[in-house]
Design a protein around this nucleic acid. Structure first.
Lengths: 237, 237
DNA sequence: ATTATCTATAGATCTATAGATAATGC
DNA sequence: ATTATCTATAGATCTATAGATAATGC
């Protein structure tokens, strides 16, 4: 039974989840079978099935972790006004969470097709995230850090979400798995933040606007993506 | 023997590709086996393997179609200046192509991991598309329809690409497969164009800017996505 | 007594090939 | 002769369970 009651942190159930997450992220959910997970942990397949009904059950539980993480970050503080540092914190935290569960968005469509209940929870999650994100943007607007109509804000929020959720997949499409070392990954993750900052840039005002150049600079450090544009665009004329 | 030489249009080889594309898009590549394709066509599995080495070979050939389609659209006319209608034409054509091969981006990471050669061709494709897209944006800038620095243009181009390539996946995550009728699909595809227009909006000038409201109106007709924001955001105060 | 684990395996697929047969083009 | 197709199947997995055994908590 997939109760939410957790045993001691090093319990077999927890270890299965840890191992599954690691293998899923590294090799893709599709390429990791229940046998692989059991073998990775040095337990029997039977034991794994004692703790989880099936693979979808493991995925479902991993989604719960990820969902709680993201929802937890996207809170607007009630006791003070938002700053542009807050805004950067949101971007970093969420992209980090995405990266930690990148297997999920990579195989999203199959995972949702396979488990109707997960699809419902995922839809609710997207809706909630978009709403919480919109609150954040509205908070930034109230703080004078952003200027946009309600309509513009909603479109911006959807675009922010789509890019955030797709960024790890985009990176995986470009970098072959054997080259996905931790360092490179981190650089590309920062490029994702750069892209999100550029997305917001036209609407930024006040402090957020005056720090724009500095922030862009900070997150484009690696300049890894510029490879994509080959030699066509001279850096400075 | 994956030669590019094609037999008569209704040849078995072509029929296999058609059937595979249709089934892949409808059910996901992962859920469609070579046996399913053969059965769908009423031919034997053996026959299918006579025409294609394996499933990856079929996918590879489908990618060729898709790639040629997209690359063909993204040409800047040399004999005249770009108009904002051209720009909308690009968006429509490319999202249409994406939709036609939506299975591809849905299972992208697995397909690329499975076929090293496909990964290389895909990377070249992305690079070429970003460059051609950049040419288009530069053309719009020369025509006075868009104002942005080179740096802004490159970031815009990457964001445009990520959203374009991810949009169908985003839609699939929200709409359960049994509800994905042709009509709904088309509405959501138009919402994708709306999102792309909003992405470009801050940089538009001249005719492109003055037609902005009209264009937004045209593509948000269904207002399907607004469901995501529940009742939180009043349409007009 | 209950919880955790293992061994062994049935059943379900899927892939891809070998070998036979039919259809077609000279 | 060559091209296209079919039948039948070996081999490779993977899932998920049954049934036995070990460990643990009272």
């Amino acid at each position: 039974m997939t109760t939410t009651a957790r045993k001691s942190p090093g319990s077999t159930r927890e270890r299965i989840l840890d191992s599954a997450l690691r293998l899923f992220n590294a090799q893709g959910e599709r390429n990791v079978t229940t046998n692989h997970i059991a073998e990775d942990l040095g337990i029997s397949p039977g034991n794994l099935y004692y703790h989880f009904r099936n693979k979808a059950d493991i995925v479902s539980e991993l989604f719960n972790h990820y969902e709680a993480l993201v929802s937890g970050f996207l809170q607007v503080p009630e006791d003070r006004v938002l700053t542009w540092q807050d805004k950067m914190g949101y971007l970093e935290s969420i992209l980090d969470s995405m990266w930690g569960a990148r297997f999920f968005h990579r195989d999203l469509s199959h995972l949702l097709n396979q488990d109707e209940d997960l699809r419902l929870r995922y839809n609710a999650f997207v809706q909630r995230t978009l709403e919480q994100g919109l609150r954040v943007y509205e908070g930034l607007r109230s703080a004078g850090l952003l200027e946009a109509t309600d309509e513009e804000l909603r479109a911006l929020m959807v675009n922010t979400w789509v890019i955030t959720a797709s960024w790890t997949g985009f990176v995986h499409g470009l970098v072959p798995p054997e080259k996905q070392q931790e360092s490179l990954d981190h650089t590309l993750l920062r490029q994702g933040i750069y892209q999100l900052v550029c997305l917001e840039a036209p609407y930024l005002r006040g402090d957020a606007a005056s720090h724009l150049a500095e922030i862009k600079q900070r997150y484009s450090a690696g300049d890894t993506l510029s490879v994509l544009f080959s030699a066509a665009t001279p850096k400075s004329a």
